[in-house]
């Protein structure tokens, strides 16, 4: 099997402890949560951190709750919990739909929402979900906490607003009464990264789209979202024609590249098709269909 380079290890007991350990171990230390991206990268020697700061035992990073008008998900909440959470399912079907398609049960039992966000893979499913729902993340450092919109969180592939000395502690989503949401993904095989994915929510009020969000992953959508398409749709009837036009705007805003998962033209086509399918189901769910 693949053998990683020598690495140091420290177990954090709290967020402040983790922050102190990050400072102590310096530049080349990394937070490890579920470890389902970082550890394989270390085995392949694509990554070689000098030390791992393990936050698996940090209690304050766990749990899903409601605070006011927001759903709060701790950074250490694992995919399997997101998948099975009644709170999340009550408000947004998109979480269950997306999580069912992320990797396999073994990965979902370990991998975390915070880890997925911070890994910032350009094909990350939860990035599309987070962008669609216009969520925020809470980032903590020794000097305090700050909140960053998920649509402003990514600085590029595998790069986020979380600095070396900081820890992402929460992911938060606004509750939108009457919202319908859905997730659509094409993968080459169960458990593979997406060839393309689209996630949406739609709130239909009085026959018109009152609010909506479109998230896309693996197709080169800037910040994993399609704001022009959303703007087009708001205030319009959720007809097939309007949904398709919005999906086309979303696809037009994507800039996918060719790889072994598929050529760019196909991915662009999927951006349209999957956005349309997700919008259809979201609108229907919002209207109680």
């Amino acid at each position: 099997m693949q053998t990683p380079a020598p690495v140091g290890y420290a177990k954090a007991t709290s967020v402040s402890d983790a922050l102190a350990l990050l400072k102590k171990h310096g530049e080349d230390s990394r937070i490890v949560a579920g470890g389902h991206s970082l550890i394989p990268m270390m085995r392949l020697r694509i990554a070689a951190p000098e030390a791992l700061i393990d936050i698996n035992d940090v209690a304050e990073l766990k749990g899903i709750s409601i605070e006011g008008n927001e759903i709060v998900i701790g950074a250490m909440v694992r995919h399997a919990e997101v998948l099975s959470s009644p709170i999340l399912f009550e408000h947004y079907a998109i979480f269950r739909e997306a999580e069912k398609l992320i990797a396999d049960p073994i990965v979902r039992n370990r991998g975390t929402i915070g880890g997925s966000m911070c890994q910032a893979d350009p094909s990350e499913d939860l990035s599309a979900v987070g962008a669609a729902l216009k969520g925020t993340v809470v980032i903590q450092s020794e000097s305090g906490t700050r909140t960053v919109a998920l649509r402003d969180f990514h600085e590029g592939p595998y790069m986020t607003k979380v600095a070396q000395s900081e820890i992402l502690t929460q992911v938060r989503f606004p509750i939108r009464p009457g919202a319908g949401s859905a997730y659509e993904k094409v993968e080459r095989r169960v458990g593979d990264w997406p060839v393309a994915s689209a996630g949406t929510f739609v709130v239909v009020k009085d026959g018109l789209v009152a609010d909506c969000g479109i998230g896309l992953t693996a197709v080169g959508a800037e910040h994993f979202c399609a704001p022009e398409a959303e703007a087009f749709l708001i205030g319009k009837e959720p007809t097939e024609e309007n949904l398709s036009a919005a999906a086309q705007l979303a696809a037009d805003s994507c800039n996918p590249f060719s790889d072994q998962r598929g050529p760019a033209d196909y991915k662009k086509h999927l951006a349209h098709e999957l956005t349309l399918r997700a919008l259809r189901r979201s609108a229907a769910a919002s209207q109680g269909a």
Partner: peptide
């Protein structure tokens, strides 16, 4: 693969043994 099937339907089949 899904990409290959879709491309075949479009009349533009892919060569699979080399990079896409």
């Amino acid at each position: 693969t899904p990409a290959n099937v879709w491309r075949a339907i479009q009349g533009r089949p892919m060569r699979t043994d080399m990079a896409v």
